[in-house]
Amino acid sequence: MSPDSGAISRDEVAHLARLARLAVTDAELDVFAGQLDVILGAVARVGEVAADDIPPTSHAVPLQNVFRPDVRRPGLSQEQALAGAPAAEEGRFRVPRILGEEQ
């Protein structure tokens, strides 16, 4: 099966990778496009089930909001929170530029 024959094209995979912040290589795109096409072909089987009137399940256990008493409890210190940071400065995470030049 060629990568472009089925559910998902190489260009779509490239677009999805950009959305997911994955700088995939051309070689990876070639492989992933074919594999994802096969996988999507298999998982599309869920569409065979007549389920129009069936409610969706997001969690097996019904979720409800859980409250705790509004009291102080220990958390991470600033030092602990920053201990694993790739870069830190003056008690803060140091990050690359977030906004573009024109913004």
Binding site: A20, R21, L22, A23, E28
Partner: peptide
Amino acid sequence: SAEEVMAATREAGFGPEVKRRIIL
């Protein structure tokens, strides 16, 4: 930019199965 650093890091840091599942 932060966005480029993120994409380069995730590309280098994740293996193929993780990337496949994130894209899927």
